[in-house]
């Protein structure tokens, strides 16, 4: 469950990036966050992942109040939230499987179990056989899927993706969306930020539209 109550976010004394945001996402939901560039979508996702604190208001994620959470507890929350940011943040000094293995090293999983799990995650996103490739040798779509594999390898309860299909051709975008749908079908709460209305329209699902830091209604989408 994700719940925002009267959440504001601003940097310094600047304008509010988010202003009085209220919403609730139930476990197992598939939700889009739409809005133009600079609307505050990425900030909203970072607040859920405890990557940034809200300026005001309360943020509840997976039964924890994130805005009151001490810094040392935040890493444990992030293990339950699979984060795929706009920049894939892949590590180019190692091959694909070692990128996927990092979250498992973080939780101290036995290497043999970790390798099996990482291979399974790569298979789920259609990257079987590409374990030894360096991410730099992969296409944009493959890199995005590798980032998803890294996010899901820890079996998170919540999956959050920021513009996962941006800069991808339609086929690659569809494949990636299918991966998210598959995870959502097995109960993973999924939240995707996108400004691609066509993409959102093809999935009859709930959409939260954000503009200038506030939620607004848009025609043709279910809010």
């Amino acid at each position: 469950m994700i719940e925002f109550q009267h959440v504001f976010k601003s940097y310094g004394r600047g304008r509010n990036i988010l202003a009085d945001i209220n919403f609730r996402i139930s476990p197992g939901e598939f939700v889009f966050v739409s809005g133009p560039s600079g609307a505050g979508k990425s900030t909203l996702l970072k607040l859920i992942g405890a990557l940034e604190p809200p300026s005001r208001g309360s943020v509840h994620v997976n039964g924890h109040r994130v805005d009151k959470m001490p810094g040392r507890a935040q890493p444990y929350l992030r293990r339950a939230v699979g984060l795929i940011l706009q920049d894939t943040h892949l590590l180019y000094d190692r091959n694909a499987i070692n990128n996927v293995l990092l979250p498992l090293a973080v939780i101290g999983l036995a290497p043999s179990v970790a390798v099996t799990r990482a291979r399974a995650a790569m298979e789920k996103v259609g990257l079987s056989g590409k374990e030894d490739l360096n991410p730099v040798e992969m296409s944009g779509g493959e890199q995005q899927r590798l980032a998803i594999a890294r996010a899901i390898v820890n079996r998170p309860a919540i999956l959050i993706a920021d513009e996962p299909t941006a800069n991808l051709d339609q086929d690659s975008a569809q494949r990636i969306m299918q991966v998210f749908r598959d995870f959502n079908r097995v109960g993973v709460t999924t939240l995707i930020a996108s400004h691609d209305r066509k993409l959102m329209a093809s999935y009859a699902t709930r959409t939260l539209h954000i503009d200038n830091g506030r939620f607004t209604d848009i025609p043709g989408v279910i809010a």
Partner: peptide
């Protein structure tokens, strides 16, 4: 720097 950022993103503690 990049690796540290990614490790934190996937739930690494400061000790890690």
């Amino acid at each position: 720097r990049e690796e540290i950022g990614v490790a934190r993103l996937v739930g690494a503690t400061e000790s890690f």
